[in-house]
Design a protein around this nucleic acid. Structure first.
Length: 185
DNA sequence: CGTCCCTTAGTT
DNA sequence: AACTAAGGGACG
């Protein structure tokens, strides 16, 4: 039912992929110990992941912010379009492909979810004011970023039915994502 | 553990 | 100033 429309949107996104070329997948030093990409596709390696162990005696806790390449962002966004929640191995696979760490992918998806949530809230406020709600799903722009519904996954685990009633159509989309996420193995 | 949420801080 | 990667705490 819904998957058809969703996939249609995905196709749109893919065909009209706004990725500014850049075939680069520059190495992103995994600032994290857990789950690093085991296969390095592109050779040039970091050589500076030494900071994690306290070898840098007392250089402050400088936050190391990695700048994702356009190719990486494009791939992440494309994936997010159709799947907002990835399970462990899906994230590992994706991180390996993009040469990012597992934690980076996990963090990116979380941040993206929050961003989406913020965006939705603003949209809702907008429509709440004067512009009346025309439809349910069609209110959101179809092309990137096509932020459909968001929802709360933690409560999905706990009380699925409760939230399903609460969010209705919005939840339906989300629960579909979660469902495919959990059961697609 | 993963996620939500808020916060911090690097990059543009 | 906006965006957003990453840190940290709370919760299940």
């Amino acid at each position: 039912m819904l998957s058809s429309s969703t996939s249609a949107i995905i196709c749109l996104f893919l065909t009209a992929s706004p990725c500014p070329s850049s075939v680069d997948l520059p190495r992103q030093d995994s600032p994290d110990s857990s789950t690093r990409p085991k296969l390095k596709l592109t050779g040039p390696e970091s050589e500076e992941d030494a900071e994690k162990e306290d070898n840098k005696v007392h250089t402050k806790k400088q936050k190391m912010r990695t700048v994702f390449s356009q190719a990486q962002l494009c791939a992440l966004r494309e994936r997010f379009q159709r799947q907002r929640y990835l399970n462990l191995q899906q994230m590992q696979e994706l991180s390996a492909i993009l040469n990012l760490s597992y934690k980076q992918v996990k963090t990116w998806f979380q941040n993206q979810r929050m961003k989406c949530k913020r965006w939705q809230k603003s949209q809702w406020q907008k429509s709440n004011g004067v512009t009346q709600v025309t439809g349910h799903f069609t209110d959101f722009p179809l092309l990137p970023p096509s932020y459909f519904a968001y929802s709360i996954p933690k409560t999905y685990m706990a009380s699925h039915n409760c939230l399903q009633l609460q969010f209705q159509h919005i939840w339906f989309l989300q629960s579909t994502d979660m469902y495919t996420n959990i059961h697609a193995r």
